[in-house]
Each structure stands twice: as C-alpha cells, then as structure tokens.
C-alpha cells in the first residue's frame, strides 16, 4: 500500500501550481470570470506545450493537474476536454487535442427528461446525420468538437455544424450551453454495449476528476480562512484564537482530509481499472463535492462581511464548489447508487 504520488507527479504538481498562481492571481481570475466568454483564450496552446494535453499522461498524472486546477481555477475547458470528451475520441483526434488546436466537450443531457449521464436519450442518427437538442453542455460555447450521446451510441460532431446558445452561469469560468443539432454530420465513436461501457467509464473519470478539483477548492478555501483568522483582529486578538472560528477551520480540515483520501483512491482505481472503481468514484464525488461546498461556506462565514462581497475571491470558489457538487446529481444521487451496491 503506497499512497504517494511519484516524484515526477509531484514535480508536475509544483510546475502546475507555479504556472497557475503566476498567470491567474485572484484579480485576473475575477476579470476572466466576468468577461464575455469566461475563458483565457490564449492559454490552450500553452497547456499543449507544457504537455498537459498529451495522450500518454496516466490518470494519476492528470489527477495532480485536476487538483491544482481546483486550487487555482484554470479558465479553460480542461476538465471538459480531458475528462469528458477525450476518453471517447480516436487517436488522431487525441493528437489534435495534444497539439493545442482542439477543445472538446460531452453533450448528454436533453431538456424535459432525466438528465443523468447514464439516462436514455432521444437524439438520433440517420445516414451519418445527427439530430437532437442538448442542454447543460459544460463549456459548450468554447468547444470546437462535441462528443454527443445519441440513442444508439456516441458520435463526434464539429461545433461548426451545431447551433450553440451559451447560458450565463454562476461559475463564470465553467459555463454551460444549449446545443441544437439539425442533421449535423456525425462520426460514429462507439455503439451499443461498447458505448454504454465507455460512457460509464467517462462518468467514473469525471467523478474522480471533479472530486480532485473539489479537494483543490476546499484546500484554497481553508488556506484563505486560516490566513484571515491569523491576521484579522477583533477585541484585541486575532480571531483565530476564538474557538468559534478555529474549530470551523478544524472541521474543514477534517472533511478535506477525508475528501483527499477518497479522491486519491478514486484516481488510483480509475488509472488501474480496479474492480472498486465505480464505488470509489461515487464515494469520492459525493464526499468531495460536499466538502468543497462546506469549506467555502465556512470560509465565507469566517471572513464576515468581506467574505460575502463580489470583490472577494471566495464566491468564485463557492460557485465552482457548487458546480462540482451539482454535476450529474447531488451527493444523494451518488449515495443512492452506493446504497444499491451495499443493500441490493
């Protein structure tokens, strides 16, 4: 049993942390989140040149990047491309991603019906043309390519062949969009049982990735809370001496430790295709999503009025935390599946 990331992975973490901190300080992040697109248009080729988009990265390598891009949000469709779309794509398309010329995402949910990743859909394909309406597509407005879930399998559709309606989203750097496909040229990626298995794996991977981001988010919220509790003085003392404040930080720390342990377990299970991967990913998503929300809520409370302002960075993290927690159903949805595994 060895829980440590490799030396190379720790090195990658160090580079990532440095890169993200220098490129996106809190003010710059706020500026991008409030911009028209919510993304840093120039960063994608840069990610490619750093090797973040390489096809030969293991999921444990990517795990380090997911955690760091939660700690300091990366305003680019990294999660959508790497976790949601890439596992369904062929090697040639993977090369376009690796070279920094393609951003992709997954379109599964449809309006007016159950919208979980594994729920049945109506979107259909005839003679290589895909027709259907998708909603809640992550980073839908900035993707160049959609992996589309259709009734009989997964298809690739170029964004140029789709009609995209962006939605403002409270998490400004990870917005969702509606996407309409009207007889769009579609390339088959997987069908039938193969597609179903693949989509299950994409979901596991997405849960693990979001749990890792959640760990990064909760860590930053805790860092901010602790720093503020040390420096802010009331009644002549730093507020961190008061247990009403310090015990909040301790509670966040405990939840964060738990979330981190499950997120790393899930990441390892995904990378090893372990038999417990499904349960590990469900557990990690459920706990890390709520831990990130819990951390941000405690950090906001610990900051008092300033923590409740638009100007302070905390709400950006809070909204990202809510995004992670809400993805593919709240923690209750994941626990319902865990319960089925335990009880049925």
């Amino acid at each position: 049993m060895d829980f440590a990331f490799s030396e190379e992975q720790e090195q990658l973490r160090g580079f990532a942390r440095e890169f993200l901190a220098s490129r996106y300080d809190d003010a710059r992040l706020a500026e991008i989140a409030d911009s028209s697109t919510g993304v840093d248009e120039d960063v994608w080729p840069k990610l490619a040149s750093m090797g973040w988009l390489d096809q030969d990265l293991t999921f444990l390598d990517q795990a380090v990047l997911f955690e760091e891009t939660g700690h300091r949000p990366l305003p680019a469709p990294y999660f959508s491309t790497v976790a949601l779309a890439a596992p369904a794509l062929d090697a040639d398309t993977g090369k376009r991603i690796a070279s920094g010329t393609l951003r992709a995402t997954l379109a599964w949910a449809e309006p007016g019906r159950p919208q979980a990743l594994l729920d049945p859909v109506e979107t259909s394909v005839a003679d290589g043309r895909l027709t259907g309406v998708k909603t809640l597509v992550p980073d839908g407005a900035v993707a160049d390519l959609f992996v589309v879930v259709a009734a009989d399998g997964l298809y690739a559709v170029e964004a140029a062949d789709a009609e995209v309606t962006p939605h403002p989203t409270i998490d400004g750097t990870r917005r969702v969009a509606d996407v309409r496909f009207s007889s769009a040229p579609a390339r088959a990626l997987a069908s039938g049982e193969e597609a179903r298995v693949l989509l299950g794996r994409i979901r596991d991977r997405a849960y693990a990735a979001l749990a890792l981001e959640g760990v990064g988010v909760a860590q930053r919220a805790l860092d901010l809370l602790v720093a503020y509790a040390k420096e802010r003085e009331q009644f002549g003392k730093p507020i961190g001496v008061y247990q009403a404040v310090s015990h909040k930080a301790s509670n966040v720390y405990v939840r964060l430790q738990e979330a981190r342990s499950l997120a790393y377990w899930a990441a390892w299970c995904v990378s090893e295709d372990d038999e417990m991967a499904r349960q590990a990913c469900l557990a990690a998503k459920a706990l890390a999503g709520s831990a990130a929300v819990f951390a941000c809520e405690n950090a906001i409370q610990g900051h008092g009025g300033i923590g409740f302002t638009w100007e302070h960075v905390l709400h950006r993290y809070y909204k990202r935390a809510q995004w992670l927690a809400a993805f593919d159903g709240s923690e209750r949805a994941q626990r319902a599946e865990v319960a089925a595994f335990l009880l049925d």
């Binding site: 049993m1 342990s261 626990r335």
Partner: peptide
C-alpha cells in the same frame, strides 16, 4: 435509511484511506 447507510460506508472508506495516507 439507504442514504444514511451509504453515507456511513463512504465515511468509513474515507477514514480507512486517510489512515493509509497517514501510514505512507
């Protein structure tokens, strides 16, 4: 009840793996 049972199983796994992390 199902939700509560799942929650404690998840909690148990999180503590188990936290111990292993601490052991590392």
């Amino acid at each position: 009840i199902r939700d509560a049972v799942a929650r404690e199983w998840i909690e148990m796994q999180s503590l188990r793996f936290t111990n292993y992390r601490s052991l590392t």
